[in-house]
């Protein structure tokens, strides 16, 4: 567990390093994920320690987003101001987006099968 977590932390810091080096506005976590992904492809396999740590940590991902989510208490004015239009935009984009994504994929697969 600890070994895998150390490796994840190192990849996270490599990600931060790369993002800072090129002054890219990308979060270090995402850059680290990309670097780890490329590393796994190059190595064509997942080291046991990383696999173990990710299997232990990933189920708790929802827990780790709670503290930042609670920050909404400081932005209630935003919800008061824009809440209605935001909810409207979300619903409209979902009602269009879900069928569109599925339909596109299904159409292309059917077309390729021909």
């Amino acid at each position: 567990m600890l070994n895998g977590f150390i490796i994840l932390l190192i990849f996270f810091l490599i990600g931060e390093f790369i993002a800072n080096l090129f002054a890219w506005p990308i979060p270090g976590s995402v850059m680290g994920m990309l670097v780890l992904f490329i590393f796994l492809i190059a190595r064509s396999g997942i080291p046991k320690s990383i696999k173990h740590s990710s299997e232990t940590l990933l189920p708790y991902l929802p827990l780790f987003i709670v503290p930042a989510s609670v920050g909404i208490v400081g932005h209630l004015y935003l919800l008061q101001q824009d809440g209605l239009i935001i909810v409207l935009a979300m619903i409209a984009s979902l009602v269009v987006g879900i069928p569109l994504c599925g339909w596109l994929m299904q159409k292309i697969l059917a077309w390729q099968a021909k």
């Binding site: 977590f5 994840l8 932390l9 990849f11 996270f12 990600g15 979060p27 270090g28 976590s29 995402v30 680290g32 994920m33 990309l34 780890l36 992904f37 796994l40 492809i41 997942i46 990383i50 696999k51 740590s53 990710s54 940590l57 990933l58 708790y60 991902l61 827990l63 780790f64 987003i65 709670v66 503290p67 930042a68």
Partner: peptide
């Protein structure tokens, strides 16, 4: 908890792979 989020996001590379 918030601080662990960074390295845990990195771990998302595993299910992707």
């Amino acid at each position: 908890l918030n601080q662990i989020l960074g390295p845990v996001i990195v771990a998302l590379a595993i299910p992707l792979y």
